[in-house]
Write a protein that binds this DNA or RNA. Sequence first.
DNA 1: ACATACCTGACCAAAATGGTCAAGTTTAGA
DNA 2: TCTAAACTTGACCATTTTGGTCAGGTATGT
Lengths: 141, 141
Amino acid sequence: MKLTSKGRYAVMALVDLARFDNINPVSLRDISLRQGISLDYLEQIFSKLKKNEIVKSIRGTQGGYVLNKNPNDIKLTNIFNAVDEKVKTVQCKKESKKGCNGKATKCVTHNLWDELEVHINTFFENKSLKDLLNNNKETRV
Amino acid sequence: MKLTSKGRYAVMALVDLARFDNINPVSLRDISLRQGISLDYLEQIFSKLKKNEIVKSIRGTQGGYVLNKNPNDIKLTNIFNAVDEKVKTVQCKKESKKGCNGKATKCVTHNLWDELEVHINTFFENKSLKDLLNNNKETRV
DNA sequence: ACATACCTGACCAAAATGGTCAAGTTTAGA
DNA sequence: TCTAAACTTGACCATTTTGGTCAGGTATGT
């Protein structure tokens, strides 16, 4: 089990954005330079963030992206969903009447993965972008 | 983020084993048939479980595997470690003095992934094989 | 008009995943 | 002692995912 860099980058970029969008839109180029993430890759990520209404885009010179919501209302869940970073544990069909593995019972570990999914998602639902902003201030090296 | 099937299979196989090893060693062939996991793949997995002293092997006819510990003492952490199913969230070097990305500060989300790792590992440390056995009895379809 | 910045989609190399295959060794039991 | 069951080891491999790059656009402020 691992976290993919798409999810990590999305969060990093949004934290960066949140810290600089008070005055002007923030260009991906700036985020790219500050965070060390490829510009082309960032564009893919922000395309998804935009579709999910987490950010707004402003085209043209001096354009860029701005947050579309209050940092307090942007939960990690939202971000991860937007970039398809899903917590995927249960492979068996949830609604299937036959249970997993085509047998008459649930596979012996079915409930476990269900629980784990809930456990992790709870963590993501309770963390907002704002939490990260505060946290970051405290922990500069 | 997703769980790989190696980790899932390991847990499924051990639950199966724990339910049948009262009398005789359990052959991988039986586990393979009951759980629908490829025999060859199971062998790879059990080789690792054995190295980590979670199971013992008994060779020869009527041989098989048995648990090497009390189900209550086999935590999910142990199983996942054994089969290299790691929770890997932080990509940045933990001890690096320079921080992440070669910059002078930790990357803005460093602490977040650290927290998440702890959160998930706590879940795994608190679940033993025995918990799964009990749980399974209750939830047959 | 032109530079800046978003936008879109095709493409790709490398690694991880989820196995298979082959060729053993060991041991219980007939 | 022979043999079949079962563990053991390691090479191999196809597919998918990951983590991007590249090549074009389009929109818009100045």
